[in-house]
Write a protein that binds this DNA or RNA. Structure first.
Lengths: 201, 201, 201, 201
DNA sequence: AATGAATGAGACTTCATTCAT
DNA sequence: AATGAATGAAGTCTCATTCAT
């Protein structure tokens, strides 16, 4: 968020940034300690002073990316509007974020979730209490149900179903890359439309 | 599960099977010619008699997996029923298939699509003509629209939107692994419900 | 020399031809039994029916190439003319042959000579008796000396010295590849001139 | 021969030495990173810390060899004497150097010259300006021409013709290996004689 | 806090050759 | 006379990580 000059940033930050750059340029497979080190003019060994191992480094990046995504969703919820509007905005914002940072999205969401409870797992029951985004989404849906805008149903379960839909769209867009702008937008709107209508009473 | 008799199978088959096993156990990153060879007690070089290189081997596996999926969808469409029923069956079958062969699903659908036109790309315009599954899905939706069951809209675009939803659900289930059976089913039904209602006029 | 149709030629011949083609296209390093076999639609193992091993195959090719070169030099000597003229023609023909079949030239002359006595070794004493080309060259020089055209000296030693000069020119032309036509010719003529004048009394 | 103490030398030096040894024993084809590593009791990967890849390692060796050769020729030109004498000394020194370091000579001069302009290419026009040895040789010949010792001709072209002759002699001596000392010397002197007389007015 | 050096494992691929059929 | 299958060795290179300084 803060745009420090690269040279004055702390070493861990510079490492993280370099890693993100490489991730963005060449994908996860291209990310190696060697490349990170050479990009910031540091020895490979130096990285281990700041991050226990590659897993920890990747973990940090992923966590930061996740926080970004959470902030994005929070902001939308604070802006106000009808639940359906907020939902539509959220879909667009989520997809847009994925397309802007495709490699981060992949690193974040297209990887195995080791212990099912940890990380970005979103399908387990009770997730609305543990994960901020799901809590917000479930609350939003619950409000819509109370207002008679959406059909009554389990808000958490519904949040999960909606999320998998959005996630699927974002994932395909990221994985398939370039698509005609017009078609891409039509697709998003069609999806938004199906979801919103699908929730209606 | 069903066709054992590993020792009597042809070498290419044994190679393919070993590759799928490794894929299933450790994911794509774990797949190496070395491991395949040692697993079936063959020299590394021997593999190259049967598959030009790693790409060809993976390609064969992926193609077979895709064919399986196509056959599955075709069978459902032939069985008859209302478009909404067929659609619901398709979602369940697709998700079920993904969960049964998680690593194949990942190898097939969670990888980058290099030239957007090739491979499993599903979002490009005109895909209904090129890809059997999309053609079937678009036809199904068109029929539903004609019958007044679904709201009128571009069938291909709608097929793509529906597919990304289903794909998203399958992908999350595969990536997150174990989930309570009951919850898993509730989730699928909720998703089916949203999609079908989302399409209704 | 005889231009048989490839299909009717004997298998050993087809093998040899394929090997020469590969040699010409990609150099010695590119020559492999696998490539030869695939080029003529034969199994690798089949080659071993006709040639004991790679060495024998290469040996055969080299021998044939050498015979070609010998025939070339013989023809020039039979055509008549003054020794100086024949010598000049020989230089031009030798260099021209090398440039026409660069890979054969390299396989023939730019490789180690294992037992110093064998193969294409040309510097050992007595070579004029053992090797046809050297015999011809030495005879030519001897005739020139008798005619008072060339300064008197050991004909064999002189033949060797002259040959290394020509060989050096041919080798450099082959190794350095493309050169402006004009410059190439000027270079050859300059070399011919130096040699002929260098032999003059 | 002179600077032993292999154990105390720096790793890059030890790598280079091992490479040269292997080159000397088995030629370029025998040179492999594996062999180098095992010879100095290092892991293969360790070599890559000191040389980017095989090309860089070979390049370093070749460059050093070339520098050696240049220094040799320079020294002879500085020692003084008549152009004919210097030329004769140069031929002897060049051939002697080739015989002392046969594998280096082969690695340096018996390899393909990829882009005709680069590397050790000597036949292209204008080489006298680009390559120190050729410049020296051309200057030497020009001086001889001015002094009326050599017939007037293009000095660069003449230098190239002379060089190919010398190169041819050195190459054959290196390729054919052992030769009776006496015969070898007679051969060199005969070649020197032909060249010097060939240049005379 | 950082470095240079090294490691061991592993990646894919190609080679000449052999053997049973 | 030929094939398909297999082998063992070798090739270059990259990786995450460790350790002494």
């Amino acid at each position: 968020m803060s745009t420090d000059a690269q040279d004055t940033a702390s070493t861990p930050t510079r490492i993280r940034r370099a890693a993100e750059e490489i991730l963005a340029e060449g994908g996860y497979e291209a990310l190696s300690m060697r490349k990170i080190a050479s990009r910031i003019g540091l020895s490979q060994a130096a990285i281990y002073r700041h991050y226990k191992d590659k897993d920890e480094l990747v973990g940090t990046i992923v966590a930061a990316g996740y926080a970004e995504l959470v902030a994005l969703v929070e902001r939308l919820n604070e802006k106000g509007g009808s639940p359906a509007e907020i939902l539509a905005h959220t879909v667009r914002a989520y997809v847009g974020w994925a397309e802007e940072r495709p490699e981060l999205f992949k690193a974040l969401l297209l990887r195995e979730v080791r212990p099912a409870s940890a990380g970005v797992a979103g399908l387990a029951p009770g997730v609305a209490r543990r994960r901020r985004t799901f809590g917000l989404l479930a609350d939003l849906l619950a409000r819509g149900m109370e207002e008679g805008l959406f059909a009554r149903a389990d808000p958490e379960l519904t949040a999960q179903a909606v999320w998998t839909s959005i996630f699927g769209l974002a994932a395909r867009l990221v994985l398939e890359g370039e698509l005609p702008r017009e078609h891409r937008e039509a697709l998003i709107e069609r999806q938004v439309n199906i979801i919103v209508r699908g929730l209606s009473p």
